[in-house]
């Protein structure tokens, strides 16, 4: 009986930066919208301000997201948006995850 090792290795090859749950949630949210602010991400992820800042900084440093400080009327906003590179990386990550889980369910 031969077992195809491909599905297992597909999981070991995932981008570790995205594989962290909080960061994958952040990218999932940002890939569905044009931009979202810090407060929205804070509520959706359930992280503390400090934690969220760290995760956003890591994603920004990797070039996956863009952070911009702006105003909406008189309201100061920290707007985050996903870059093309981030979108591509997140899509690859999801593809690898699907491949792995698809094989596992058989």
């Amino acid at each position: 009986m031969s077992v195809n090792p491909q599905p297992i290795t597909s999981l070991t090859n995932v981008d570790r930066l995205i594989h962290e749950p909080s960061r994958s949630i952040i990218l999932a949210i940002l890939s569905a919208v044009q931009s979202a602010d810090f407060l929205y991400l804070l509520r959706e992820t359930g992280l503390t301000k400090g934690n969220l800042t760290v995760h956003l900084s890591k994603l920004e440093a990797a070039g996956f997201i863009k952070i911009e400080k702006t105003y909406k009327g008189k309201l100061p906003l920290t707007l985050c948006s996903i870059t093309n590179e981030g979108e591509q990386a997140f899509e690859n990550y999801r593809k690898q995850l699907r491949e792995f889980l698809g094989e596992e369910h058989k």
């Binding site: 919208v33 044009q34 979202a36 929205y40 909406k72 009327g73 906003l77």
Partner: peptide, 19 residues
């Protein structure tokens, strides 16, 4: 949008939808 800036964004944040 004017009302949303004063009531929604301070509560639950701002999200700009894709076009």
């Amino acid at each position: 949008l004017w009302y949303r800036e004063r009531s929604t964004y301070p509560r639950t944040g701002f999200v700009s939808a894709k076009s």
